[in-house]
Amino acid sequence: MSLFVKDPQARVDHAIDWSAYLAGQSLVASLWTVSPVETGGLVVEANAFEAQRSSVRLNGGVAGRIYRLTNRVTLSDGQVDERSVTMRVEER
């Protein structure tokens, strides 16, 4: 799991390139979730996906908190996979 740092006032984009894991498949669905869910916490503002890449725009977060950002995808053959990253929010 990778660690990223974000300012609570920043809007940032994050993406996962799935091409190394697809073995000839493509993405047909993508869902991003944040844990924990809390008032003022990290929020998924927008998301999108292409055949081999998924992306998300993040906003907010409580300074000093650590969040798990998870991308769950469905592949063209019906398989489901997910990757998570850690997002630490701190004043920068």
Rank of each mutant, 00 (worst) to 15 (best):
T74M: 12
S19G: 09
G64T: 05
T39M: 10
R72K: 13
R53T: 06
R72C: 04
V37G: 02
E90I: 11
I16C: 03
E82C: 12
G61W: 00
G41Y: 04
T33D: 06
R72P: 01
R57E: 07
L3A: 10
A51L: 15
S2V: 14
Y67G: 05
S2N: 10
S19M: 08
N59S: 11
S76K: 01
R68M: 13
L42E: 05
A20S: 15
L27A: 03
R72W: 00
S26F: 13
W32P: 03
F4K: 09
A23K: 11
S19E: 04
A46Q: 13
A46E: 14
M1S: 11
S30Y: 01
E38D: 09
M1E: 04
S54L: 06
R65K: 07
F4Y: 10
R92A: 14
M87G: 02
I16G: 00
W32L: 08
R72F: 00
T70S: 02
R72H: 09
G64Y: 02
A51W: 09
V85N: 03
K6E: 02
E50C: 08
E90N: 11
D7N: 13
S54Y: 02
T70G: 04
S35G: 01
T86V: 14
Y67C: 08
A63I: 00
L31R: 08
R72D: 00
L58E: 03
V73C: 02
V80G: 00
V43K: 12
T74D: 02
A29F: 02
A23F: 11
A51C: 08
R88G: 08
A15C: 14
Q25V: 09
P8E: 06
L27Q: 01
D17I: 10
D77N: 15
V5P: 02
A46Y: 06
G24S: 11
V37N: 05
S76W: 06
A23Q: 12
A48R: 11
G78V: 10
V89M: 04
L69K: 05
E82N: 08
N59V: 14
A63R: 03
S30W: 00
V62K: 05
A15W: 04
R68I: 13
T33E: 07
T39I: 14
V37R: 12
L31M: 11
K6R: 01
A29H: 02
A23H: 14
L58K: 00
S84H: 09
Q25R: 14
G64N: 00
